[in-house]
């Protein structure tokens, strides 16, 4: 059991990395990864939301949609749950911790449109995870996202001062480096498959 969970988390972090192998969560990845501090705050907030979204969507699907026979509305319901959840988190943050609100709160509205969040909710259903597996899958995906985001932010701070050919400056070189990193991450797919 514990081994299965460890494998699930490791798989989500390295083998099927959301950003580099499954392309989920790319929009914030490209726009946020230019500065190290923002990358760290974003990845913390996103990991938290991903884990919580896994739990909420699991509960909604199994205790609301299945009994009512409304499984075909799952994407619609999940996005509603995610929107409400993110706004709930924002309100709690504002009331309890102004410091956290100031550092993480600004990224909250954008997390709703991060496809990784809806993606993790849908994949949990597709892969028939139970509640514990869903929690750890969400956590693993979040850790994988954070790992790549932080690695990349460090790299792009270097790239900003590097001598890049003119047409490739900015987003283009970011894409190329992501491609090289993705090539490296493909190396992890050997041992488990």
């Amino acid at each position: 059991m514990l081994g299965d969970i460890a494998l699930l988390v490791l798989g989500a972090v390295l083998v099927n990395n959301f950003v580099l192998v499954q392309f989920l969560g790319l929009d914030p990845f490209m726009s946020v990864s230019t500065k190290f501090e923002t990358a760290i705050s974003t990845s913390m907030a996103t990991t938290f939301v991903l884990t919580l979204a896994s739990v909420c969507s699991y509960l909604t699907y199994n205790y609301l949609l299945i009994p009512l026979d409304l499984a075909y509305l799952r994407a619609f319901t999940f996005i509603l749950v995610i929107v409400l959840m993110v706004q709930g988190i924002e309100i709690v943050l504002r009331k309890t911790s102004p410091l956290l609100q100031r550092t993480l709160g600004v990224f909250m509205p954008w997390i709703t449109t991060n496809c990784a969040v809806l993606g993790v909710a849908l994949l949990n259903i597709d892969q028939a995870h139970n509640l514990v597996e869903s929690v750890f899958y969400g956590l693993g995906v979040g850790m994988g996202f954070s790992l790549v985001l932080v690695l990349f932010a460090a790299m792009r701070e270097r790239l900003a001062v590097a001598d890049v050919p003119e047409p490739f400056q900015g987003a283009a070189i970011g894409m190329i480096t992501a491609g090289v990193a993705s090539l490296a991450f493909m190396g992890f797919s050997g041992p488990t498959s």
């Binding site: 499954q22 283009a172 894409m175």
Partner: peptide, 10 residues
């Protein structure tokens, strides 16, 4: 996957 990033970058 890597090809997708490289083609998009180009």
């Amino acid at each position: 996957p890597p090809g997708a990033f490289l083609v998009a970058g180009c």
